[in-house]
Design a protein around this nucleic acid. Structure first.
Lengths: 142, 142
DNA sequence: AAATTAAGAGATAGATATATCTTTTATTAT
DNA sequence: ATAATAAAAGATATATCTATCTCTTAATTT
């Protein structure tokens, strides 16, 4: 569904959101421990997300990645769009370049319905929303 | 969503189903014209689908790919499973190996719902079902 | 039987995604 | 100021996906 990059990104962002809501910054090694992923790879991804403003960071001792109110309001859809672009939300299921209402592929309508549901779900899922269930160990990131 | 391989496979299979229902075999060049894809690449894919029994073929003059009743009954889900495996139907949205009801990722439930809808849709879409709308040029494969 | 046609099979090439390594820059603490 | 820390950046390696090429095998037509 999503690229590996995007999966790591979502998990890391939810993890960092959790840490941030609990008043902590997360260094890269803590992120790796928290979501179980390759260190250098997630580092690259987080760099990109910082550059795009979805995430904050500070260098040096006690540095790390963190979020403030505005970042905690970003949705999973925002993360996905930043990493994978929006082809998952808008592209044709059968890969047709010209697929549209006017020139639809055979599953255009059905696909659109499901994609819209997915998009709604992902747009409504804010990064800061997952903290409690994670703290209570009702859900997991690794 | 699906791999390029899978997109080509679905389009080719729907195209061949259309030809078959209209009493024709489709050679590889006709398939390429019908769905606009790389010739050698789709050839490989169709080989595989023949091997797996989702498609029939004959060599030599007037040969080509075709389907009979049983093949026309296969669903898009069958094609997808043959090409991409069933990770799309069963894998965790965030890539967790152990994700399950017992140890769910934060979006397990929501994802499952959408995936199930997609699976239903793809299981109910039989290859032989698209012929009429394609013949009438209400839908398109390229 | 010979020539032609078209799929099957295997090998190779190119592009993209995934992962790792090294060096640099910014921040903090001493 | 200096040393230590941690992210940023750039370069490189590996794997997988996508695409192409060549040769072989099977079937048909003449």
């Amino acid at each position: 569904m999503f690229s590996k990059t995007c999966e790591y990104a979502i998990r890391a962002m939810i993890f960092i959101a959790q840490q941030s809501r609990n008043g902590e910054k997360a260094g890269i090694k803590l992120v790796v421990k928290g979501i179980n992923c390759p260190e250098h790879f997630i580092a690259k991804i987080l760099q990109e997300l910082v550059r795009k403003g979805l995430l904050l960071s500070v260098k040096g001792p006690n540095g790390g990645f963190y979020m403030e109110k505005p970042q905690l309001e970003f949705s999973l859809a925002d993360v996905i769009r930043a990493v994978d672009g929006d082809k998952i939300f808008s592209g044709c299921g059968l890969g047709l370049a010209e697929c549209s209402e006017i020139e639809p592929c055979p599953i255009h309508k059905e696909f659109k319905k499901i994609r819209n549901e997915m998009q709604d779900m992902l747009c409504n899922a804010k990064l800061g929303e997952f903290t409690e269930q994670l703290d209570k160990k009702l859900t997991f990131l690794k």
